[in-house]
Measured scan of single mutants.
Amino acid sequence: SLTLTVRGEEAVRRWYKWAQAHNLEVEVETHGDEYVLHIK
């Protein structure tokens, strides 16, 4: 499992696509303009 902090929706989309390509689940938490992604 992997936890990432990114800024901006574009980065979130990029990681989301990456995770889907690897059959992984993604949980997204929003903290202001930062997003915490939990990839499992």
Results as ranks from 00 to 15, higher is better:
Asp33Tyr: 06
Gly32Asp: 08
Thr3Tyr: 04
Gly8His: 06
Arg7Phe: 12
Ala21Ser: 11
Val12Trp: 06
Glu34Thr: 14
Ser1Asn: 13
Val26Gly: 01
Tyr35Pro: 03
Ile39Gly: 00
Ala11Gly: 05
His31Ser: 09
Leu24Ser: 03
Tyr16Val: 15
Ser1Thr: 15
Glu34Pro: 02
Ser1Gly: 14
Ile39Gln: 00
Leu2Thr: 07
Ser1Leu: 13
Glu29Lys: 08
Lys40Ala: 08
Val26Asn: 00
Glu9Pro: 09
Glu10Asn: 07
Leu4Gly: 02
Val28Tyr: 06
Ala19Gln: 01
Glu34Leu: 15
Arg14Ala: 15
Arg14Ile: 12
Thr30Ser: 13
Asn23His: 11
Gly8Lys: 04
Glu27Trp: 14
Val6Pro: 01
Val28Gly: 02
Leu37Gln: 00
Glu34Trp: 15
Thr30Glu: 14
Leu4Ala: 05
Arg13Ala: 13
Ala11Trp: 06
Tyr16Ala: 09
Trp18Gly: 00
Glu9Ala: 10
Val12Gly: 03
Leu4Met: 09
Leu24Trp: 11
Lys40His: 15
His22Met: 10
Lys17Ile: 13
Ile39Cys: 02
Leu4Trp: 04
Val36Pro: 00
Ala11His: 06
Ala19Val: 05
Glu29Tyr: 11
Glu10Ile: 08
Thr30Ala: 14
Val28Ile: 14
Lys40Phe: 14
Leu2Met: 12
Ile39Val: 05
Leu2Ile: 13
Leu37Arg: 00
Ser1Lys: 13
His38Tyr: 10
Tyr35Arg: 03
Glu25Asn: 10
Val36Tyr: 07
Asn23Val: 03
Val26Leu: 12
His38Asp: 02
Arg7Ser: 10
Val36Phe: 07
Ala11Leu: 09
Ala21Met: 13
Asn23Ile: 02
Thr5Lys: 12
Trp15Gln: 01
His22Leu: 09
Glu27Cys: 05
Gly8Val: 03
Val28Leu: 10
Glu29His: 11
Trp18Ile: 03
Arg7Asn: 09
Gln20Ile: 14
Glu10Lys: 08
Ala21Ile: 11
Glu34Val: 15
Leu4Gln: 03
Glu29Cys: 04
Glu10His: 08
Glu34Tyr: 15
His38Pro: 00
Val12His: 02
Asn23Pro: 01
Arg13Thr: 11
Gly32Val: 04
Trp15Val: 12
Gly32Trp: 03
Arg7Met: 11
Tyr35Phe: 12
Glu27Gly: 05
Ala11Cys: 02
Glu27Ser: 13
Arg7Val: 13
Thr30Pro: 13
Leu4Val: 15
Thr30Arg: 15
Glu10Ala: 12
Tyr16Arg: 13
Ser1Met: 13
Gly8Asn: 10
Lys17Trp: 09
Ala11Lys: 05
Leu2His: 08
His38Thr: 14
His31Asn: 12
Ala21Gln: 12
Trp18Phe: 06
Val12Cys: 03
Ala21Tyr: 12
Arg7Asp: 06
Val6Gln: 01
Gln20Glu: 12
Val6Thr: 02
Ser1Gln: 13
Gly8Leu: 04
Thr5Leu: 12
Glu25Asp: 11
Glu34Gly: 07
Trp15Phe: 08
Ala19His: 01
Leu24Asp: 01
Glu27Asp: 10
Glu25Arg: 11
His31Gln: 10
Arg14Cys: 08
Thr3Glu: 07
Leu2Arg: 05
Asn23Arg: 08
Thr30Val: 15
Val6Ala: 03
Lys40Val: 09
Lys17Gln: 13
Gly8Ser: 14
Leu24Pro: 00
Ala19Thr: 03
Lys40Gln: 09
Leu4Ser: 02
Trp15Asn: 00
Trp18Ala: 02
Gly32Pro: 04
Lys17Arg: 11
Val6Glu: 02
Gln20Ser: 10
Ala11Glu: 14
Val28Pro: 01
Glu34Ala: 10
Ile39Ala: 01
Leu24Phe: 14
Val6Asn: 01
Glu27Met: 12
His31Tyr: 12
Arg7Lys: 14
Arg13His: 11
Thr30Phe: 12
Lys17Ala: 15
Ser1His: 14
Val36Ser: 03
Ala19Glu: 00
Ala19Ile: 07
Leu37Phe: 04
His31Asp: 10
Leu37His: 00
Trp18His: 02
Glu34Arg: 10
Val36Cys: 03
Arg7Tyr: 13
Glu10Phe: 06
Glu9Tyr: 13
Val12Asp: 01
Glu10Pro: 05
Tyr16Asn: 06
His22Phe: 07
Thr3Met: 08
Glu27Ile: 15
Glu29Val: 12
His22Val: 04
Glu29Thr: 12
His31Glu: 06
His38Phe: 08
Leu2Tyr: 12
Lys17Leu: 14
Ser1Asp: 14
Ile39Trp: 02
Val26Arg: 00
Val12Ile: 08
Asp33Ile: 06
Thr3Pro: 04
Trp15Thr: 02
Asn23Met: 09
Asn23Ser: 09
Asp33Glu: 11
Ala19Trp: 02
Arg7Gly: 05
Glu10Met: 07
Thr3Phe: 03
Ile39Arg: 00
Val28Asp: 01
Tyr16Glu: 15
Leu24Thr: 02
Trp18Val: 02
Glu29Gly: 04
Ala11Gln: 09
His38Lys: 10
Asp33Val: 06
Val36Thr: 11
Arg14His: 11
Arg13Ile: 12
Lys17Pro: 01
Thr5Glu: 05
Leu4Glu: 02
Leu24Cys: 05
Arg14Glu: 13
Gly8Gln: 04
Glu29Trp: 10
Glu9Gln: 09
Val36Ile: 14
Lys17Glu: 15
Val6Ser: 02
Thr30Asp: 11
Gly32His: 05
Val12Arg: 05
Glu27Leu: 13
Glu27Pro: 00
Trp18Lys: 01
Ala21Asn: 08
Leu4Asp: 01
Arg7Thr: 12
Gln20Asn: 10
Thr30His: 14
His31Met: 11
Glu9Ile: 14
Glu27Phe: 13
Arg13Lys: 14
Tyr16Ile: 15
Val36Arg: 08
Lys17Met: 13
Leu37Ile: 14
Asp33Gly: 08
Arg13Met: 12
Leu4Thr: 05
Glu29Phe: 12
Tyr16Gly: 04
Asp33Gln: 08
Tyr16Asp: 04
Arg7Glu: 06
Glu9Arg: 09
Leu24His: 04
Val28Cys: 04
Thr30Trp: 09
Tyr35Val: 06
Trp15Arg: 01
Glu10Val: 07
Glu34His: 15
Ala21Phe: 11
Glu9Lys: 11
Ala21Arg: 09
Thr3Gln: 09
Glu9His: 09
His22Glu: 04
Gly8Met: 03
Ile39Leu: 08
His31Thr: 07
Val36Trp: 06
Gly32Met: 05
Glu9Ser: 08
Glu10Asp: 12
Tyr35Gln: 03
Thr3Ser: 10
Tyr16Met: 15
Asn23Lys: 08
Arg14Met: 14
Trp18Arg: 01
Asp33Met: 07
Trp18Pro: 00
Ile39Glu: 00
Arg7His: 13
Gln20Arg: 09
Glu25Pro: 05
Thr5Pro: 03
Thr3Trp: 07
Trp18Asp: 00
Gly8Tyr: 04
Lys40Ser: 13
Ser1Arg: 10
Ala21Leu: 13
His38Ile: 12
Thr5Ile: 15
Glu10Ser: 08
Asp33Pro: 06
Val12Tyr: 13
Lys17Tyr: 10
Lys40Trp: 15
Gln20Met: 13
Leu37Glu: 00
Trp15Pro: 00
His38Gly: 02
Lys40Asn: 08
Thr30Ile: 15
Glu9Thr: 09
Ser1Trp: 14
Gly32Arg: 05
Leu2Gln: 06
Arg14Asp: 10
Glu27Tyr: 13
Val36His: 06
Val6Trp: 01
His22Thr: 03
His38Glu: 03
Tyr16Cys: 07
Lys40Glu: 05
Asn23Phe: 09
Gln20His: 11
Asn23Leu: 07
Val26His: 01
Thr30Gln: 15
Arg13Ser: 10
Trp15Glu: 01
Trp15Leu: 08
Leu4Phe: 09
Lys17Asn: 11
Ala19Leu: 08
Arg13Val: 09
Val26Lys: 00
Tyr35Leu: 05
Ala11Asp: 09
Val26Asp: 00
Arg14Asn: 10
Val12Pro: 00
Ser1Tyr: 13
Glu10Gly: 07
Tyr35Ala: 03
Asn23Trp: 06
His38Trp: 06
Leu37Val: 09
Glu9Asn: 06
His31Lys: 13
His22Lys: 06
Val26Glu: 00
Ile39Pro: 00
Ser1Phe: 11
His38Arg: 11
Lys40Leu: 09
Tyr35Trp: 09
Val12Gln: 03
Ile39Ser: 00
His22Gln: 09
His38Ser: 06
Arg13Asp: 13
